[in-house]
């Protein structure tokens, strides 16, 4: 499967297919992480994170993939892994190392942002199942309130909208209460 085909999948919104293709690269990444002293679970987490970073990058308009997916994912994974290792061993050195090249600088930024989003994700996962579904339909699947009202058995669009607002507000509250202090 060529990178072009995978890009095509991403463009058409067939993310699952694209990811499934990219997973063929996983054994190599796993080998990398294992060689750096990580466990299988770490490898899986790192790869997941790398896929998210890749996806975010593809979403942003000014990004152009210059290398192959493999090269990109490999370097991102390596970076993520060394980042987590730094955090665990001696976090104060993270800023002092000046060997960051442009590429890594950029990735570092994305990863840092991603950490913030992870807190929001945790807040989201604390919501009830129905709220989660509702928010995913709106923000992820980009469904209209009309469609949502239909699927979720709401009487009207307006109710769907209000319920969405309530759910979102709940997620924000949880986010603010639990995760902001930890993060800052």
């Amino acid at each position: 499967m060529s990178d072009q085909k995978i890009l095509e999948f991403f463009k058409n919104g067939q993310r699952e297919k694209a990811f499934a293709q990219l997973y063929q690269l996983y054994p190599k990444i796993e080998k990398l992480i294992l060689s750096k002293g990580g466990r299988k679970q770490d490898a899986s987490d790192v790869f997941q994170e790398a896929l998210i970073v890749l996806y975010r990058k593809l979403q942003s308009s000014n990004f152009k993939l210059t290398a192959s997916f493999y090269t990109y994912l490999y370097s991102v994974s390596r970076y993520i892994w060394s980042d987590t290792q730094k955090q665990h061993s001696n976090p104060e050195t993270s800023g002092s190392q000046n060997e960051l090249v442009d590429f890594e600088e950029e990735i570092s930024k994305t990863i840092h942002e991603e950490k913030k989003y992870r807190f929001a994700e945790n807040a989201f996962s604390e919501l009830g199942e129905r709220c989660q579904r509702l928010l995913l339909m709106f923000y992820h699947k980009k469904m209209s309130f009309k469609e949502i009202a239909n699927v979720m058995q709401f009487k009207s669009e307006k109710i769907a909208k209000n319920q969405k607002y309530k759910c979102l507000q709940k997620a924000k509250d949880i986010f603010k209460n639990h995760y902001k202090p930890v993060q800052s």
Binding site: E16, F19, I52, F119, A123, F124, L136, K172, F175
Partner: peptide, 26 residues
């Protein structure tokens, strides 16, 4: 800003789900 973070967080959850499915399929 806050909204952005939360929305990205929701997206993350969805992405993770997709990735998990992809992994399963793989």
């Amino acid at each position: 800003q806050e909204h952005l973070i939360v929305v990205k967080g929701i997206e993350r959850a969805a992405l993770k789900q997709d990735i998990a499915n992809a992994k399963q399929a793989y």
